[in-house]
Measured scan of single mutants.
Amino acid sequence: MPSETPQAEVGPTGCPHRSGPHSAKGSLEKGSPEDKEAKEPLWIRPDAPSRCTWQLGRPASESPHHHTAPAKSPKILPDILKKIGDTPMVRINKIGKKFGLKCELLAKCEFFNAGGSVKDRISLRMIEDAERDGTLKPGDTIIEPTSGNTGIGLALAAAVRGYRCIIVMPEKMSSEKVDVLRALGAEIVRTPTNARFDSPESHVGVAWRLKNEIPNSHILDQYRNASNPLAHYDTTADEILQQCDGKLDMLVASVGTGGTITGIARKLKEKCPGCRIIGVDPEGSILAEPEELNQTEQTTYEVEGIGYDFIPTVLDRTVVDKWFKSNDEEAFTFARMLIAQEGLLCGGSAGSTVAVAVKAAQELQEGQRCVVILPDSVRNYMTKFLSDRWMLQKGFLKEEDLTEKKPWWWHLRVQELGLSAPLTVLPTITCGHTIEILREKGFDQAPVVDEAGVILGMVTLGNMLSSLLAGKVQPSDQVGKVIYKQFKQIRLTDTLGRLSHILEMDHFALVV
Protein backbone atom coordinates (compact mmCIF):
# COMPACT_ATOMS: atom_id res chain seq x y z
CA MET A 1 0.00 0.00 0.00
CA PRO A 2 1.46 3.38 -0.95
CA SER A 3 2.14 6.01 1.69
CA GLU A 4 0.47 8.58 -0.54
CA THR A 5 -3.22 7.88 -0.95
CA PRO A 6 -4.36 7.56 -4.56
CA GLN A 7 -7.90 8.47 -5.51
CA ALA A 8 -9.95 5.39 -6.31
CA GLU A 9 -11.06 5.38 -9.92
CA VAL A 10 -14.78 5.39 -10.62
CA GLY A 11 -16.40 3.16 -13.21
CA PRO A 12 -19.03 4.43 -15.58
CA THR A 13 -22.09 2.52 -14.35
CA GLY A 14 -23.49 0.42 -11.52
CA CYS A 15 -23.14 0.57 -7.77
CA PRO A 16 -19.76 1.25 -6.14
CA HIS A 17 -20.21 -1.25 -3.36
CA ARG A 18 -20.43 -4.54 -5.20
CA SER A 19 -19.28 -7.42 -3.06
CA GLY A 20 -16.32 -9.40 -4.23
CA PRO A 21 -12.77 -8.55 -5.29
CA HIS A 22 -12.46 -4.92 -6.29
CA SER A 23 -11.00 -3.78 -9.54
CA ALA A 24 -9.33 -0.47 -10.12
CA LYS A 25 -12.79 0.76 -11.10
CA GLY A 26 -14.25 -0.27 -7.75
CA SER A 27 -16.59 -2.95 -9.13
CA LEU A 28 -16.46 -6.64 -9.98
CA GLU A 29 -13.79 -7.49 -12.50
CA LYS A 30 -13.97 -10.74 -14.44
CA GLY A 31 -11.16 -12.10 -16.56
CA SER A 32 -7.96 -14.08 -16.46
CA PRO A 33 -5.59 -14.07 -13.44
CA GLU A 34 -3.14 -12.12 -15.58
CA ASP A 35 -5.78 -9.45 -16.24
CA LYS A 36 -6.58 -9.21 -12.54
CA GLU A 37 -2.93 -8.96 -11.59
CA ALA A 38 -2.48 -6.14 -14.07
CA LYS A 39 -5.63 -4.23 -13.12
CA GLU A 40 -6.12 -4.80 -9.41
CA PRO A 41 -4.89 -1.86 -7.30
CA LEU A 42 -2.69 -2.01 -4.23
CA TRP A 43 -5.63 -0.77 -2.21
CA ILE A 44 -8.97 1.01 -2.50
CA ARG A 45 -9.87 3.95 -0.31
CA PRO A 46 -12.57 3.19 2.29
CA ASP A 47 -13.86 6.74 1.78
CA ALA A 48 -14.13 6.61 -2.03
CA PRO A 49 -17.06 8.68 -3.36
CA SER A 50 -20.30 6.73 -3.40
CA ARG A 51 -21.96 5.93 -6.71
CA CYS A 52 -25.08 4.49 -5.10
CA THR A 53 -28.21 5.13 -7.17
CA TRP A 54 -30.77 5.05 -4.32
CA GLN A 55 -33.18 7.97 -4.29
CA LEU A 56 -36.22 8.53 -2.12
CA GLY A 57 -39.29 7.68 -4.20
CA ARG A 58 -37.43 5.64 -6.81
CA PRO A 59 -39.17 2.30 -7.58
CA ALA A 60 -37.63 -0.73 -5.87
CA SER A 61 -37.69 -2.54 -9.21
CA GLU A 62 -34.89 -0.25 -10.42
CA SER A 63 -32.49 -1.39 -7.67
CA PRO A 64 -29.38 -3.13 -9.09
CA HIS A 65 -29.10 -5.31 -5.98
CA HIS A 66 -30.39 -8.69 -4.87
CA HIS A 67 -32.86 -8.13 -2.03
CA THR A 68 -33.98 -10.46 0.75
CA ALA A 69 -36.86 -10.38 3.21
CA PRO A 70 -36.88 -11.32 6.91
CA ALA A 71 -37.66 -15.03 7.22
CA LYS A 72 -39.44 -16.75 10.08
CA SER A 73 -37.10 -19.05 12.03
CA PRO A 74 -37.83 -22.79 12.09
CA LYS A 75 -38.19 -24.57 15.43
CA ILE A 76 -34.82 -26.26 14.92
CA LEU A 77 -32.15 -24.14 13.26
CA PRO A 78 -29.94 -25.85 10.63
CA ASP A 79 -26.92 -23.90 11.89
CA ILE A 80 -26.15 -20.92 14.12
CA LEU A 81 -26.17 -18.48 11.19
CA LYS A 82 -29.97 -18.75 11.18
CA LYS A 83 -29.91 -17.02 14.58
CA ILE A 84 -28.81 -13.78 12.93
CA GLY A 85 -31.62 -11.25 12.72
CA ASP A 86 -35.12 -11.21 14.22
CA THR A 87 -33.79 -9.47 17.35
CA PRO A 88 -36.21 -8.33 20.08
CA MET A 89 -37.63 -4.86 20.62
CA VAL A 90 -37.67 -4.07 24.35
CA ARG A 91 -39.30 -1.18 26.20
CA ILE A 92 -36.93 0.94 28.31
CA ASN A 93 -39.02 1.67 31.39
CA LYS A 94 -36.93 3.54 33.95
CA ILE A 95 -34.30 5.61 32.15
CA GLY A 96 -36.77 7.53 29.98
CA LYS A 97 -38.83 8.53 33.01
CA LYS A 98 -35.69 9.44 34.96
CA PHE A 99 -34.75 11.99 32.29
CA GLY A 100 -38.25 13.35 31.85
CA LEU A 101 -39.20 11.81 28.51
CA LYS A 102 -42.90 11.88 27.68
CA CYS A 103 -42.58 9.48 24.74
CA GLU A 104 -42.20 5.71 24.70
CA LEU A 105 -38.54 4.62 24.52
CA LEU A 106 -37.83 1.28 22.82
CA ALA A 107 -34.54 -0.60 22.32
CA LYS A 108 -33.74 -2.80 19.31
CA CYS A 109 -31.43 -5.30 21.04
CA GLU A 110 -28.89 -6.32 18.39
CA PHE A 111 -26.72 -8.14 20.93
CA PHE A 112 -29.18 -11.05 20.60
CA ASN A 113 -27.63 -11.93 17.24
CA ALA A 114 -25.59 -15.15 17.20
CA GLY A 115 -22.20 -13.42 17.42
CA GLY A 116 -23.39 -10.78 19.86
CA SER A 117 -23.69 -7.68 17.68
CA VAL A 118 -25.46 -5.86 14.87
CA LYS A 119 -22.43 -6.60 12.68
CA ASP A 120 -23.45 -10.26 12.39
CA ARG A 121 -26.09 -9.12 9.89
CA ILE A 122 -23.65 -7.48 7.48
CA SER A 123 -21.01 -10.19 7.91
CA LEU A 124 -23.38 -12.93 6.81
CA ARG A 125 -24.87 -10.78 4.05
CA MET A 126 -21.44 -9.88 2.60
CA ILE A 127 -20.42 -13.55 2.56
CA GLU A 128 -23.71 -14.74 1.05
CA ASP A 129 -23.61 -12.09 -1.68
CA ALA A 130 -19.96 -12.90 -2.45
CA GLU A 131 -20.82 -16.60 -2.69
CA ARG A 132 -23.82 -15.84 -4.89
CA ASP A 133 -21.78 -13.86 -7.44
CA GLY A 134 -18.96 -16.42 -7.47
CA THR A 135 -16.35 -14.30 -5.72
CA LEU A 136 -15.94 -16.49 -2.63
CA LYS A 137 -15.09 -20.12 -3.31
CA PRO A 138 -14.36 -23.06 -0.99
CA GLY A 139 -10.89 -22.75 0.53
CA ASP A 140 -10.63 -18.98 0.01
CA THR A 141 -9.41 -16.54 2.66
CA ILE A 142 -11.46 -13.66 4.10
CA ILE A 143 -9.49 -10.63 5.34
CA GLU A 144 -11.19 -7.68 7.02
CA PRO A 145 -10.07 -4.48 8.77
CA THR A 146 -12.47 -4.01 11.69
CA SER A 147 -12.94 -2.70 15.21
CA GLY A 148 -13.82 -6.26 16.19
CA ASN A 149 -17.56 -6.89 15.87
CA THR A 150 -17.55 -7.31 12.09
CA GLY A 151 -14.54 -9.58 12.58
CA ILE A 152 -16.46 -11.72 15.05
CA GLY A 153 -19.41 -11.94 12.66
CA LEU A 154 -17.14 -12.89 9.75
CA ALA A 155 -15.18 -15.39 11.86
CA LEU A 156 -18.44 -16.98 13.01
CA ALA A 157 -19.70 -17.34 9.45
CA ALA A 158 -16.27 -18.47 8.22
CA ALA A 159 -16.18 -21.19 10.89
CA VAL A 160 -19.55 -22.51 9.71
CA ARG A 161 -18.83 -22.09 5.99
CA GLY A 162 -15.23 -23.31 6.10
CA TYR A 163 -13.21 -20.24 5.10
CA ARG A 164 -9.88 -19.08 6.47
CA CYS A 165 -10.38 -15.75 8.26
CA ILE A 166 -7.80 -13.04 9.04
CA ILE A 167 -8.92 -10.05 11.12
CA VAL A 168 -6.89 -6.82 11.28
CA MET A 169 -7.83 -4.58 14.21
CA PRO A 170 -6.39 -1.60 16.13
CA GLU A 171 -4.65 -2.20 19.45
CA LYS A 172 -7.26 -0.26 21.46
CA MET A 173 -9.92 -2.91 20.88
CA SER A 174 -10.74 -5.09 23.86
CA SER A 175 -8.98 -8.32 24.77
CA GLU A 176 -12.39 -10.01 24.96
CA LYS A 177 -12.90 -9.44 21.23
CA VAL A 178 -9.48 -10.94 20.54
CA ASP A 179 -10.26 -14.00 22.69
CA VAL A 180 -13.58 -14.60 20.94
CA LEU A 181 -11.96 -14.23 17.51
CA ARG A 182 -9.24 -16.73 18.41
CA ALA A 183 -11.82 -19.17 19.76
CA LEU A 184 -13.64 -18.96 16.41
CA GLY A 185 -10.41 -19.86 14.62
CA ALA A 186 -9.59 -16.44 13.18
CA GLU A 187 -6.04 -15.21 12.77
CA ILE A 188 -5.51 -11.74 14.27
CA VAL A 189 -3.19 -8.90 13.31
CA ARG A 190 -3.04 -5.80 15.55
CA THR A 191 -2.20 -2.29 14.32
CA PRO A 192 -1.40 1.02 16.08
CA THR A 193 -4.53 2.78 17.32
CA ASN A 194 -3.25 6.23 16.37
CA ALA A 195 -2.37 5.32 12.75
CA ARG A 196 -4.38 7.32 10.20
CA PHE A 197 -6.70 5.22 8.06
CA ASP A 198 -4.62 5.99 4.93
CA SER A 199 -1.33 5.03 6.58
CA PRO A 200 0.34 1.74 5.56
CA GLU A 201 0.39 0.87 9.29
CA SER A 202 -3.38 1.31 9.78
CA HIS A 203 -5.78 -1.63 10.01
CA VAL A 204 -7.01 -0.74 6.52
CA GLY A 205 -3.48 -0.50 5.10
CA VAL A 206 -2.27 -3.74 6.68
CA ALA A 207 -5.37 -5.63 5.51
CA TRP A 208 -4.77 -4.58 1.90
CA ARG A 209 -1.09 -5.52 2.14
CA LEU A 210 -2.09 -9.00 3.33
CA LYS A 211 -4.64 -9.30 0.53
CA ASN A 212 -1.95 -8.50 -2.04
CA GLU A 213 0.32 -11.18 -0.54
CA ILE A 214 -2.13 -14.06 0.10
CA PRO A 215 -3.52 -15.98 -2.91
CA ASN A 216 -7.31 -16.34 -3.22
CA SER A 217 -7.93 -13.82 -0.47
CA HIS A 218 -10.70 -11.23 -0.39
CA ILE A 219 -11.45 -8.07 1.55
CA LEU A 220 -15.24 -7.91 1.65
CA ASP A 221 -14.76 -4.28 2.69
CA GLN A 222 -17.55 -3.22 5.02
CA TYR A 223 -16.66 0.43 4.34
CA ARG A 224 -17.60 0.18 0.64
CA ASN A 225 -19.72 -2.94 0.29
CA ALA A 226 -23.39 -2.36 -0.56
CA SER A 227 -24.24 -5.53 1.36
CA ASN A 228 -23.61 -3.52 4.54
CA PRO A 229 -26.50 -1.03 4.28
CA LEU A 230 -28.57 -3.54 2.28
CA ALA A 231 -28.58 -5.97 5.21
CA HIS A 232 -30.26 -3.31 7.33
CA TYR A 233 -32.51 -1.98 4.56
CA ASP A 234 -33.85 -5.48 3.87
CA THR A 235 -34.07 -6.93 7.40
CA THR A 236 -33.33 -4.65 10.36
CA ALA A 237 -35.57 -1.83 9.13
CA ASP A 238 -38.40 -4.21 8.21
CA GLU A 239 -38.20 -5.83 11.65
CA ILE A 240 -38.44 -2.41 13.31
CA LEU A 241 -41.47 -1.46 11.20
CA GLN A 242 -43.19 -4.77 11.96
CA GLN A 243 -42.44 -4.61 15.68
CA CYS A 244 -43.71 -1.02 15.88
CA ASP A 245 -46.69 -1.62 13.57
CA GLY A 246 -45.24 1.08 11.34
CA LYS A 247 -45.57 3.71 14.07
CA LEU A 248 -42.36 5.41 15.20
CA ASP A 249 -41.41 9.07 15.40
CA MET A 250 -37.66 8.96 15.98
CA LEU A 251 -34.80 6.52 15.48
CA VAL A 252 -31.43 7.03 17.20
CA ALA A 253 -28.34 5.09 16.10
CA SER A 254 -24.62 5.44 16.74
CA VAL A 255 -22.51 5.52 13.58
CA GLY A 256 -19.35 3.65 12.59
CA THR A 257 -19.19 2.47 8.99
CA GLY A 258 -22.63 4.02 8.60
CA GLY A 259 -24.25 0.91 7.16
CA THR A 260 -26.74 0.51 10.02
CA ILE A 261 -28.11 4.05 9.99
CA THR A 262 -28.02 4.30 6.18
CA GLY A 263 -29.93 1.08 5.54
CA ILE A 264 -32.51 1.60 8.28
CA ALA A 265 -33.01 5.30 7.54
CA ARG A 266 -33.55 4.79 3.81
CA LYS A 267 -36.32 2.24 4.46
CA LEU A 268 -37.91 4.40 7.15
CA LYS A 269 -37.85 7.45 4.86
CA GLU A 270 -39.80 5.36 2.35
CA LYS A 271 -42.27 3.73 4.73
CA CYS A 272 -42.49 6.17 7.64
CA PRO A 273 -41.49 9.59 6.25
CA GLY A 274 -42.31 11.51 9.42
CA CYS A 275 -39.72 9.60 11.48
CA ARG A 276 -36.71 11.72 12.45
CA ILE A 277 -33.30 10.03 12.10
CA ILE A 278 -30.71 10.95 14.75
CA GLY A 279 -27.02 10.09 14.26
CA VAL A 280 -24.61 9.67 17.18
CA ASP A 281 -20.90 10.35 16.66
CA PRO A 282 -18.22 10.29 19.42
CA GLU A 283 -16.09 13.34 20.17
CA GLY A 284 -12.84 12.90 18.25
CA SER A 285 -14.60 11.49 15.17
CA ILE A 286 -15.49 13.46 12.03
CA LEU A 287 -18.70 11.78 10.84
CA ALA A 288 -21.20 14.35 12.12
CA GLU A 289 -22.62 17.30 10.22
CA PRO A 290 -22.38 20.27 10.20
CA GLU A 291 -18.58 20.17 10.31
CA GLU A 292 -18.49 22.59 13.28
CA LEU A 293 -19.77 19.77 15.51
CA ASN A 294 -16.50 17.90 14.96
CA GLN A 295 -14.22 20.73 16.10
CA THR A 296 -12.40 19.50 19.20
CA GLU A 297 -8.88 19.06 20.51
CA GLN A 298 -9.72 15.46 21.38
CA THR A 299 -8.40 12.94 18.88
CA THR A 300 -8.91 9.64 20.73
CA TYR A 301 -11.83 8.03 22.54
CA GLU A 302 -12.38 4.82 24.48
CA VAL A 303 -15.80 3.77 23.18
CA GLU A 304 -15.39 1.10 20.50
CA GLY A 305 -17.06 0.42 17.18
CA ILE A 306 -18.28 3.93 16.34
CA GLY A 307 -16.67 7.03 14.85
CA TYR A 308 -13.89 7.34 12.25
CA ASP A 309 -11.32 9.78 10.93
CA PHE A 310 -12.76 9.39 7.41
CA ILE A 311 -16.24 9.23 5.87
CA PRO A 312 -16.95 5.61 4.82
CA THR A 313 -18.34 5.17 1.33
CA VAL A 314 -21.50 3.40 2.55
CA LEU A 315 -22.49 6.23 4.92
CA ASP A 316 -25.28 8.34 3.42
CA ARG A 317 -25.39 11.41 5.64
CA THR A 318 -28.28 12.92 3.65
CA VAL A 319 -30.76 10.60 5.41
CA VAL A 320 -29.71 11.77 8.89
CA ASP A 321 -31.91 14.63 10.11
CA LYS A 322 -29.73 15.68 13.04
CA TRP A 323 -26.37 14.72 14.53
CA PHE A 324 -25.32 14.69 18.18
CA LYS A 325 -21.82 14.23 19.59
CA SER A 326 -21.27 11.91 22.55
CA ASN A 327 -18.39 11.53 25.00
CA ASP A 328 -16.86 8.54 26.75
CA GLU A 329 -18.05 9.40 30.25
CA GLU A 330 -21.73 9.60 29.33
CA ALA A 331 -21.41 6.55 27.05
CA PHE A 332 -20.12 4.29 29.81
CA THR A 333 -22.34 5.82 32.49
CA PHE A 334 -25.46 5.15 30.41
CA ALA A 335 -24.26 1.66 29.41
CA ARG A 336 -23.86 0.76 33.09
CA MET A 337 -27.27 2.33 33.75
CA LEU A 338 -28.88 0.19 31.04
CA ILE A 339 -27.39 -2.90 32.65
CA ALA A 340 -28.21 -2.01 36.27
CA GLN A 341 -31.67 -0.49 35.78
CA GLU A 342 -33.06 -2.19 32.67
CA GLY A 343 -31.17 -5.51 32.68
CA LEU A 344 -29.91 -4.89 29.14
CA LEU A 345 -26.41 -6.38 28.89
CA CYS A 346 -25.16 -3.99 26.20
CA GLY A 347 -21.85 -2.39 25.22
CA GLY A 348 -20.50 1.14 25.43
CA SER A 349 -21.82 2.39 22.08
CA ALA A 350 -25.33 1.53 23.28
CA GLY A 351 -24.68 3.92 26.15
CA SER A 352 -23.74 6.63 23.64
CA THR A 353 -26.98 6.04 21.77
CA VAL A 354 -29.24 6.22 24.82
CA ALA A 355 -27.36 9.23 26.24
CA VAL A 356 -28.22 11.08 23.03
CA ALA A 357 -31.75 9.66 22.84
CA VAL A 358 -32.78 11.16 26.20
CA LYS A 359 -31.71 14.56 24.82
CA ALA A 360 -33.09 14.27 21.30
CA ALA A 361 -36.42 12.75 22.36
CA GLN A 362 -37.24 15.65 24.68
CA GLU A 363 -39.11 17.13 21.70
CA LEU A 364 -41.45 14.11 21.47
CA GLN A 365 -44.81 14.07 23.20
CA GLU A 366 -46.90 11.47 24.98
CA GLY A 367 -48.09 8.84 22.54
CA GLN A 368 -45.00 9.18 20.35
CA ARG A 369 -42.23 6.62 20.08
CA CYS A 370 -38.42 6.67 19.93
CA VAL A 371 -36.42 3.58 18.93
CA VAL A 372 -32.73 3.23 19.82
CA ILE A 373 -30.31 0.68 18.35
CA LEU A 374 -28.22 -1.18 20.94
CA PRO A 375 -25.37 -2.54 18.77
CA ASP A 376 -23.48 -5.07 20.88
CA SER A 377 -23.08 -7.00 24.11
CA VAL A 378 -21.22 -6.29 27.34
CA ARG A 379 -19.38 -9.58 26.70
CA ASN A 380 -16.79 -7.60 24.72
CA TYR A 381 -16.00 -5.20 27.57
CA MET A 382 -15.80 -7.21 30.80
CA THR A 383 -12.35 -5.82 31.60
CA LYS A 384 -13.24 -2.32 30.40
CA PHE A 385 -16.24 -0.19 31.38
CA LEU A 386 -17.83 -3.02 33.37
CA SER A 387 -14.80 -2.88 35.69
CA ASP A 388 -14.85 -0.24 38.45
CA ARG A 389 -11.06 -0.22 38.43
CA TRP A 390 -10.90 0.52 34.71
CA MET A 391 -13.48 3.27 35.10
CA LEU A 392 -11.47 4.80 37.95
CA GLN A 393 -8.21 4.60 36.06
CA LYS A 394 -9.74 6.32 33.03
CA GLY A 395 -11.32 9.02 35.18
CA PHE A 396 -14.95 8.02 34.50
CA LEU A 397 -15.57 7.16 38.17
CA LYS A 398 -14.46 8.90 41.36
CA GLU A 399 -13.16 7.19 44.48
CA GLU A 400 -16.14 8.42 46.48
CA ASP A 401 -18.46 6.60 44.06
CA LEU A 402 -17.23 3.28 45.49
CA THR A 403 -18.03 2.01 48.96
CA GLU A 404 -15.64 -0.94 49.40
CA LYS A 405 -13.18 -0.75 52.30
CA LYS A 406 -9.77 0.64 51.37
CA PRO A 407 -6.31 -0.01 52.95
CA TRP A 408 -4.82 2.58 55.32
CA TRP A 409 -2.57 4.13 52.67
CA TRP A 410 -5.30 4.54 50.02
CA HIS A 411 -5.89 8.28 50.46
CA LEU A 412 -2.25 9.28 50.97
CA ARG A 413 -0.74 11.50 48.27
CA VAL A 414 1.94 10.31 45.87
CA GLN A 415 4.20 13.13 47.08
CA GLU A 416 4.40 11.41 50.48
CA LEU A 417 6.46 8.64 48.88
CA GLY A 418 9.41 11.06 48.70
CA LEU A 419 10.29 10.08 45.13
CA SER A 420 13.53 11.33 43.60
CA ALA A 421 13.89 12.59 40.02
CA PRO A 422 14.17 9.62 37.63
CA LEU A 423 16.97 8.75 35.27
CA THR A 424 16.15 10.10 31.79
CA VAL A 425 17.68 9.47 28.37
CA LEU A 426 17.74 11.47 25.14
CA PRO A 427 16.09 9.95 22.05
CA THR A 428 19.34 10.26 20.09
CA ILE A 429 21.48 7.91 22.17
CA THR A 430 21.82 4.34 20.94
CA CYS A 431 19.93 1.30 22.15
CA GLY A 432 23.21 -0.34 23.15
CA HIS A 433 24.26 2.64 25.28
CA THR A 434 20.80 2.85 26.89
CA ILE A 435 20.94 -0.83 27.88
CA GLU A 436 24.36 -0.25 29.47
CA ILE A 437 23.03 2.74 31.44
CA LEU A 438 19.95 0.91 32.71
CA ARG A 439 21.96 -2.13 33.79
CA GLU A 440 24.58 0.04 35.48
CA LYS A 441 21.95 2.00 37.43
CA GLY A 442 19.78 -1.05 38.16
CA PHE A 443 16.68 0.32 36.40
CA ASP A 444 14.19 -1.53 34.19
CA GLN A 445 12.87 1.55 32.40
CA ALA A 446 13.48 5.26 31.91
CA PRO A 447 11.61 8.25 30.46
CA VAL A 448 12.84 9.52 27.10
CA VAL A 449 12.96 13.33 27.02
CA ASP A 450 14.15 15.83 24.45
CA GLU A 451 16.69 18.56 25.17
CA ALA A 452 13.90 20.88 26.35
CA GLY A 453 12.78 18.30 28.91
CA VAL A 454 9.56 17.35 27.10
CA ILE A 455 8.59 13.73 27.76
CA LEU A 456 8.49 11.75 24.51
CA GLY A 457 7.74 8.34 25.96
CA MET A 458 9.21 5.47 27.96
CA VAL A 459 11.83 2.90 27.12
CA THR A 460 12.08 -0.45 28.90
CA LEU A 461 14.97 -2.86 29.15
CA GLY A 462 12.75 -5.83 28.28
CA ASN A 463 11.34 -4.24 25.14
CA MET A 464 14.78 -3.20 23.89
CA LEU A 465 16.25 -6.66 24.43
CA SER A 466 13.34 -8.41 22.71
CA SER A 467 13.51 -5.96 19.78
CA LEU A 468 17.23 -6.63 19.42
CA LEU A 469 16.75 -10.40 19.54
CA ALA A 470 13.96 -10.19 16.95
CA GLY A 471 16.18 -8.12 14.66
CA LYS A 472 13.78 -5.17 14.67
CA VAL A 473 16.56 -2.80 15.79
CA GLN A 474 20.34 -2.85 16.02
CA PRO A 475 22.46 -1.77 19.04
CA SER A 476 23.58 1.24 16.99
CA ASP A 477 20.00 2.42 16.34
CA GLN A 478 18.67 5.39 18.27
CA VAL A 479 16.56 4.55 21.30
CA GLY A 480 13.77 6.67 19.85
CA LYS A 481 12.86 3.67 17.67
CA VAL A 482 11.74 1.56 20.64
CA ILE A 483 9.94 4.02 22.92
CA TYR A 484 6.44 3.51 24.27
CA LYS A 485 4.52 6.63 23.28
CA GLN A 486 1.43 5.68 25.27
CA PHE A 487 1.91 5.73 29.01
CA LYS A 488 -0.02 6.71 32.11
CA GLN A 489 0.79 9.92 33.97
CA ILE A 490 0.03 10.70 37.58
CA ARG A 491 0.49 13.87 39.63
CA LEU A 492 2.15 14.26 43.02
CA THR A 493 -1.21 15.37 44.40
CA ASP A 494 -3.01 12.20 43.25
CA THR A 495 -3.74 9.47 45.77
CA LEU A 496 -1.90 6.19 46.14
CA GLY A 497 -5.26 4.55 45.50
CA ARG A 498 -5.35 6.02 42.00
CA LEU A 499 -1.72 4.95 41.46
CA SER A 500 -2.66 1.45 42.64
CA HIS A 501 -5.41 1.19 40.02
CA ILE A 502 -3.01 2.29 37.27
CA LEU A 503 -0.35 -0.24 38.28
CA GLU A 504 -2.92 -3.05 38.27
CA MET A 505 -3.29 -2.52 34.51
CA ASP A 506 0.07 -1.04 33.48
CA HIS A 507 3.67 -1.89 34.31
CA PHE A 508 4.59 1.68 35.23
CA ALA A 509 3.28 5.22 35.62
CA LEU A 510 5.13 8.48 35.16
CA VAL A 511 4.87 11.02 37.99
CA VAL A 512 4.70 14.54 36.52
Score class of each variant (00 low, 15 high):
P2A: 11
P2C: 14
P2Y: 07
P6Q: 15
Q7P: 12
E9D: 14
G11F: 04
G11Q: 01
T13P: 07
T13I: 08
T13N: 12
C15W: 09
S19R: 04
S19T: 01
G20R: 10
P21Y: 01
P21C: 15
P21W: 11
H22K: 01
H22L: 08
H22Y: 07
A24D: 11
L28A: 10
K30R: 13
G31S: 11
S32W: 11
S32M: 01
E34R: 01
K39L: 12
E40L: 13
E40V: 07
P41S: 11
L42P: 08
W43Y: 12
R45E: 14
T53A: 08
G57E: 13
R58M: 08
P59Y: 01
P59T: 15
P64T: 01
P64I: 15
H65E: 01
H65T: 01
T68Q: 14
S73C: 14
S73L: 10
S73A: 12
S73E: 01
K75M: 14
P78L: 10
I80D: 05
L81W: 01
G85R: 11
G85L: 01
G85I: 05
T87N: 08
V90M: 01
V90I: 01
V90C: 15
R91K: 13
R91T: 15
I95W: 01
I95F: 10
I95K: 01
K97I: 12
K98M: 13
L101S: 01
K102N: 12
E104M: 01
L106S: 04
L106N: 15
A107Y: 05
A107I: 05
F112S: 01
F112V: 05
N113T: 06
A114T: 09
A114Y: 06
A114V: 08
V118S: 08
K119V: 01
R121L: 01
I122L: 06
I122D: 05
I122F: 04
I122R: 01
I122A: 05
S123V: 04
L124Q: 15
I127H: 01
I127L: 09
I127A: 10
I127C: 04
D129F: 06
A130P: 01
A130C: 07
E131M: 05
L136G: 04
K137C: 01
K137A: 07
G139L: 07
G139A: 03
G139H: 11
D140T: 07
D140P: 01
T141M: 11
I143F: 04
P145A: 07
P145M: 05
S147I: 01
N149R: 05
N149I: 10
G151C: 05
I152C: 01
L154S: 01
A159F: 04
V160P: 04
V160S: 13
R161G: 11
R161C: 13
G162V: 03
G162T: 05
Y163V: 01
C165F: 01
I166C: 06
E171H: 14
K172V: 01
M173H: 06
S174D: 01
S174T: 05
S174Y: 01
E176M: 04
K177P: 01
K177G: 03
K177C: 01
V178Q: 01
D179V: 06
V180C: 15
R182S: 08
R182E: 07
A186N: 05
V189S: 07
R190D: 01
R190T: 08
P192R: 10
T193L: 09
A195G: 04
A195L: 04
E201L: 08
E201G: 13
H203W: 06
V204R: 01
G205F: 14
V206A: 08
N216C: 11
S217M: 01
S217I: 01
H218P: 04
H218D: 01
I219R: 03
I219C: 01
D221Y: 13
D221Q: 05
Q222F: 01
R224C: 10
R224H: 11
N225E: 01
N225P: 01
A226I: 12
A226Y: 08
S227L: 04
L230G: 01
Y233D: 01
Y233M: 01
Y233N: 08
Y233E: 01
Y233L: 04
D234H: 01
D234K: 11
D234L: 12
T235A: 08
T236M: 12
I240P: 01
L241G: 07
Q242A: 06
C244R: 07
G246F: 04
G246T: 15
K247H: 15
L248Y: 01
M250P: 01
L251Y: 07
A253S: 07
A253I: 01
S254F: 03
G256H: 11
T257P: 01
G259S: 11
G259Y: 03
I261M: 12
T262E: 04
G263Y: 03
I264D: 01
I264L: 10
A265C: 03
K269C: 11
K269D: 01
K271Y: 07
K271W: 06
C272G: 08
C272F: 10
G274I: 09
C275E: 04
C275Y: 01
R276Q: 01
